[in-house]
Simulated assay, not measured.
Amino acid sequence: MRHAETVLLQGGVELLVRNAVASDARALRDVMQRTHAETDYLLSYPDEQGTDDEQEARSLAEMERSDNEVELVAVLDGRIVGSAGVTAVGSRRKVVHRARFGISILKEHWGLGIGRVLMEASIDCARRAGYAQLELEVVADNQRAVSLYRRAGFEEYGRNPRGYRSAAAGYQELVHMRLEL
């Protein structure tokens, strides 16, 4: 699935949102390492990022050829500063209508509207892929993210009080949210 757009952020700063490609593998892995070290709200820790540059490049090339999944990067001044992805829940007929959404942005770029832009691009990609429902999990304490998702129309459909077990914070409650497309 192809996606490319340039958006003006606050202060007239241009943000490019495009497909991640194989040549982005090293930079994207570096960004993932940083984002996963900067916040306790993401699924994994930096040392749990199990792929090398070659594996990541192959994965990105495969994703780029996909008709129903996408990995997007946010590029500011020629540097990747965040990413978002839409992946199928599964290929079986009973779940083929559902996709998962995830996002991460370097902390130094929080509050600029990049999350909103990546989320809107992901929703657009999910619609074009033919999904009927986009799903996500968010740590309940992450009020900025919960608020962003609610403003986009995501609705809460459940909670898991022990969804994550953080090394720093102990158990974290996860909010399950969905958006009908």
Results as ranks from 00 to 15, higher is better:
128 R>T: 07
164 Y>G: 00
145 A>M: 05
132 A>P: 00
65 R>A: 15
116 R>N: 08
61 A>V: 03
171 Y>W: 11
152 A>F: 11
129 A>F: 11
59 S>C: 00
150 R>K: 14
148 L>N: 03
55 Q>F: 01
84 A>S: 15
162 R>L: 01
113 G>Q: 07
134 L>M: 13
132 A>Q: 15
108 E>R: 10
60 L>M: 09
142 N>Y: 05
93 R>P: 14
137 E>G: 12
98 R>W: 06
137 E>D: 13
104 S>C: 06
169 A>P: 00
118 L>Y: 05
86 V>A: 13
48 E>N: 09
98 R>S: 14
131 Y>G: 00
107 K>N: 09
83 S>A: 15
111 G>P: 03
59 S>W: 13
134 L>V: 08
73 V>T: 12
68 N>G: 05
64 E>Q: 14
77 D>I: 04
128 R>S: 11
106 L>C: 03
88 A>M: 15
143 Q>D: 08
136 L>Q: 13
50 G>F: 03
77 D>T: 04
87 T>K: 15
61 A>F: 06
134 L>H: 03
142 N>Q: 07
170 G>W: 02
136 L>R: 12
73 V>Q: 05
168 A>C: 00
162 R>S: 02
63 M>I: 09
148 L>K: 07
147 S>Y: 03
82 G>E: 02
109 H>P: 02
66 S>A: 15
54 E>R: 05
160 N>K: 11
127 R>A: 13
146 V>D: 03
83 S>P: 01
53 D>F: 07
86 V>E: 12
149 Y>R: 00
168 A>H: 07
144 R>Y: 01
82 G>P: 02
89 V>Y: 13
65 R>C: 10
109 H>N: 11
146 V>G: 05
168 A>D: 06
151 R>Y: 02
139 V>C: 10
127 R>E: 09
111 G>C: 07
115 G>L: 09
130 G>I: 10
